[in-house]
Structure formats: C-alpha cells, structure tokens
Design a binder for these strands. Structure first.
Lengths: 347, 347
DNA sequence: CTGAAAGCGCTTACAG
DNA sequence: CTGAAAGCGCTTACAG
C-alpha cells in the first residue's frame, strides 16, 4: 500500500492540491460540493498525511505544559518525571516539542491554583498533569475542556473528566504485590497490620484500591492465616501516629508485618526504629524519607513504578494525539515494581 | 541556536550546496582543498543534518536484521522481544524501518549458523543479535565487521568484538537482588545452596557474575549467617540433577534456600515438588517452565528484565547510530526486576 | 471560491 | 571537479 498524497486526491477530485489542503484543514473558502467530494475521496483512499513533509514545511513547535509536584532530594519520584519527559522530547526529534514546566508544592492548593492560572494564560497545545489535588484539578480540567486543550493524567486518575488518557499505577495490583511480599517473609500464623496513613480526602480512592488488592491476595492465594487488621490514621504527625500504633500493637501482640498503603511509610519506620522492633514493613513510593529507611533495613520493600516511563509515555501519547488524533489506550497501567535495597541502586 | 543548513555552509565556503553535500557524504569528486574548507566550516558551525528533510528526499527504508531465539508459549521471554521491536519501529515512524527477523532454535548451532548465512546473503543496514552461541556468534561478528555492517548485542555480551552497543542485564546486580530476596525470607542461621546448573561453556561468564553478586551481598549487608554452598552441575537431565541435589541436601541438612544461577530453575523446582520440600527457591528468566512453578509457589522469585524494553532500545540505538553516528552508551544495563506470582501478571 | 507558485532542507542526476 | 535544477509531500501567501 503506497503512500496516498494530497496530489493523488487532487487528481482524482479534479481540483488543485491547494483546494484539497483547504478541505483537509477546514480552512474554509471551499464550495460545499467540492468539499464533500474531496472528503469522500480522501476517506476512500485512506489518506494519511505525511508528517515528515508536514514537519518540514510548518516547522511547528508543539508546546506542552506539564503540571507536576516539585521534585527534590527528598522526593526522587517527582524528580524523575522531568527526565522521562526530556527523554520523550529527545526521541520525538526531529519534531520540535517544547515543555513548559509548572512545578507546584506538593499538597499546596494555593500554589497549585497559581500554576494552573499560569498555564491557562499561556499558549499551549496540551497539558500533562498529576491531578493530585482533586477539587482544584477538576476545575482546571473544566477550563481546559472549555478551551479545547487536551490533557493527560499521570500518577493519579480523576473520574468525570475528558482526559484523553491516564498513565499510572494499577493500585489494586500494587496491593496484591505488597501482600505477596509480606506473605513470603512472615510466619504463617502471624497477624498483619494495614495502616491507612493519610490526611483526610487525600487520594483515598487510590489507597482503597490498594487495600482491596491486598485483601484479595489473601482470599485467593495467600499462605498466611493470621488476622488482617486495618487501622485508619488521618493525622500524620509523629505523636498521633505513635500513640495509635502503640495502642494497636499492644492490643495485638501477634502482629508480624505492617503494610502502609500510602507514601507515609517512613513515619511508621521511624516508630519501629525507635522501639527497636523488627516487624516486617512494606510501603509505597520511592521518596527520600522512605528509601532512607529502606537502606537501613527498617522498611523491607517499597512498591513503586518507573516514573520516567510514565511521563515519557505521557509526552508521546499527547504528541500522537495531536498529530494523528489517535488515542492508544484510555487507561495505561504501568507495571508495578518491587523495590528493595538492591533494586533501588538502579534508580 | 538556529539550525545550520548546508546552504549556510555553502555560502560561507563560497561553493554550491551540491559540493557541500558531496563532501559531507564522501561522494568524492571534490578538490582536496575545497573538501577541507567545507569540513572545517561544517565543524565550526556544528552542522547537524535535518533528518526530516533527509527522510523526505531519500525515502530510505532502513533494513535491520534481528537474530534471536524463537519464542513460544514455553519461552515468553523471547516472545516478548519482537513486541519491543515492533514498538520501536512504530515510534520511529514516520521514518521507515523494516525488520528482517531470523529466529533460531535455542541451543541449535546448526540452525544459528544457517540464519547468520541468510542474514549475510541479504542486504541489511544493521544487525541486532543475541550472541548466545559464543563461537558461532564470534564468527558472525567477524563477517559483519568485514562487511562493515554495524551490530548490537542484546541479552548476552561478547567480548572482543566491535559491537556498537550491548543492552542487557547487569548480571552482578542480578545476583545481589537474588541474594537480598533469599535473605529476607530465610531464617538467619540457615544455609543457602547455589546451584550452577548449565551445560558446559554455556554462558558461563554471565553465571559467574551472578554468583559474584550473590556473594558480595552477604559480604556487604546480608543478615544470614549460614553457610553458602555452591555446586556445579553440567548436565541438565533429570537423573543427574536429582542425584546430585539429593547428595548435597543429605550432607547439608540445614539448607533453607536454593538459588539457581541459570534459567534451569524449573529442574530444581520439579525436584522440590516431588520431594515435597518447601525450601525457598529463587532463579532467573521468565520461561514457561519457570513461571509454571512460580505460580505453583515452588519457585518463590524469578529475577528478570523487561525484554520488550531491551529490544526496543536496541532498535532505537541502531537507528540513531545509522542516522547520526552517535553511540549513547556502549553498555546499557537494563534494570533487574523482581518477579513473583503477582508481578508476573503484568507481563 | 480556486489555482499556481514558492519554499522547508536535503539528495540526486545532469550538464559542463 | 563544480554548479544549477528538479523533486520529496506539504503549507502558505498571492493572484484572480
């Protein structure tokens, strides 16, 4: 199947290539009849624009806005995303994609809002965002819808939006993986404690899915026969957490492992270190605070994903969408990864 | 920094663009003096060809030959490679890359040789190969060198060749990861058995690196204080293996975990299943025979890599090399992955 | 409302 | 040994 060119369409429709181009790009100024004819032929011949030629003539630079939390030595996870983005930009060469980064302070609504404003005030062809702050993000998406700017979610999914794609963790599977690791290390008769440690409303859907996955593992295949105890802690300060955990452990002396369903595993780790307990501890997310305890051997495993892959894909999907209006997959789950001291070194 | 075009060079050198092109492509027919002048200016201006324009005019289709083992339901690992290759080809669009697959029967020297012949007889711009059969592969590389066809290794590395790149596992790290998993699951005073189970000469360098990594982990950070016992088995038939293992286990009743440094973990798994032993078992490679025992819970972990990523990278590197003559990294190690029943489902 | 022409940066004959 | 011209498929003014 040889390439169909606009020239081929033009000949068949008995018009000039200029006219074909006008039709194809809705640049108006075309008789209705001609228009239909050209469109029909284009469809019939299955015309696909040659984006190399396109790139050469237009020399268009795509502008993508990226709205994600600020990374740092204490947050390697978000530090890795820009790298993935740069990688995608590099691989998209020789097309020209420019990234407008807008980093917001994690959990800072005001800052998030400021950054969304900035994005809306500047020209952009599409947005990649981590909609971590639900309400603010929802508003932002509505604005984007209104301006017909396409957007892709990474890391966190938000229902009831018109995002063209979501790329992130399969939280349910993440829960199962955590369960399987604990199951391997724990004595079969010991109990397991699940700590849902997060400020209220924070990403609860995600944490719930992890919990469901965790429990489903033991229903399906787990060896462990001990109790599965769940505790909710909605304040993450040291005192509250320690008091709660103290109490739970006192009531349940048979606990042999703890799973923290959020990124706050380090808070529990500090507690265990202080009390010199060698309970098995598993959590999520490759943050500095977590990996420090991983290296010390207090946290045994972290469940993570490859942030670079995630954002790299986001850029590519957005580009594909813009150039060919195709959407590969609405939900693209990234493989969950098991991280311990040894695999950490590869990050 | 705006794009430098051959036109710019031509103007500065006071020649025509045709001449510049001749110099840049070594198409001869240029006065030595002109040549030097143009080259100097090109370098000075840091000329980079616009590969979009290039692609548009030449409409060249790159032909890559891929020489890898035949995949199948019993060998998902090699089944995944073509997928990665297709992905790369897709992402390299709108450039045109055509793959000439040559699958050989694993461990079949004659078949491997036949396939190398076929590759050499057909026109190709570059080769991606898994040089699993060392001697045959070495010969093949020499031939490629002679014909000035560039080649990239995946999966296995071969010394003393002119490969432009190697993409594969960091075997040493793979050994450490295996060690850390066993260390997590085993009682501290139990012994660990390492089985080097492979036919003679088969990829021994790789297995050695894994062994070294394994031991280094316990020297550095391991909790386990038991003995580390290594046994070499150079015949992989059931009888030999069972006899040997029987003997070793009898002599060392305190063994709590077994690591198999090769892909033959399933042979040991079958043994453990038969004898109803629930020793911890860790091995390498996502083959069907291995994953079957993983699902049964006889093998606890497999250490693997992402074959798709591996071959995807290979195609991209080869393309980059051909279009811009740059080599990113001579050795590109892929992250090692921890695979158990739960992460397996993501393959 | 439509067509013809120029140009994006490069390569490929062809003429001299 | 060198230059001028045509062409890859598309888009962008411009003329009518």
């Amino acid at each position: 199947m040889k390439q169909v060119r606009i020239k081929d369409i033009a000949e068949k429709a008995d018009v000039s290539i200029g006219t074909v181009d006008r039709v194809l790009h809705n640049r108006g100024e075309v008789a209705q009849k001609t228009r239909e004819k050209v469109l029909a032929i284009a469809k019939e011949m299955n015309y696909q624009p040659n984006i190399v030629a396109q790139a050469l003539t237009t020399k268009k630079t795509y502008k993508f806005s990226v709205l994600i939390p600020k990374g740092g030595q204490d947050n390697v996870y978000w530090l890795a995303h820009p790298k993935g983005i740069e990688k995608a930009v590099h691989e998209l060469q020789p097309f020209s994609v420019e990234i407008d980064y807008r980093f917001f302070e994690l959990h800072n609504e005001v800052d998030f809002l400021t950054k969304t404003r900035e994005i809306l005030e500047n020209p952009t062809d599409g947005v990649i965002l981590a909609p971590i702050l639900k309400n603010e993000a929802l508003h932002f998406c509505e604005e984007l819808d209104r301006k017909k700017i396409p957007y892709i979610f990474i890391d966190t999914f938000l229902d009831n939006t018109n995002c063209i794609s979501f790329i992130g963790e399969d939280a349910f599977q993440g829960g199962r993986v955590a369960a399987s690791l604990i199951d391997f290390g724990i004595a079969p008769e010991k109990d397991i404690l699940v700590v849902n440690l997060a400020k209220n409303l924070e990403n609860t859907q995600h944490l719930n899915r992890r919990n469901q996955g965790f429990l489903s593992y033991f229903l399906d295949t787990g060896q462990n026969t001990g109790m599965k105890i769940t505790v909710e802690i909605h304040q993450t300060d040291k005192e509250t957490v320690e008091a709660k955990i103290d109490k739970v452990l006192k009531q349940n002396p048979n606990i042999g492992a703890i799973l923290v369903s959020s990124a706050k595993t380090h808070v529990i780790a500090r507690y265990l270190e202080k009390k010199r307990l060698d309970t098995i501890l598993v959590g999520y997310e490759i943050t500095r605070k977590n990996t420090d305890y991983l290296k010390k051997g207090i946290i045994h495993f972290l469940i993570g994903q490859r942030p670079m892959d995630q954002s790299e894909k986001a850029v590519k999907r957005l580009f594909e969408y813009l150039t060919s209006h195709t959407i590969a997959l609405k939900h693209e789950f990234q493989p969950v990864e098991i991280i311990n001291t040894e695999t950490l070194s590869m990050y």
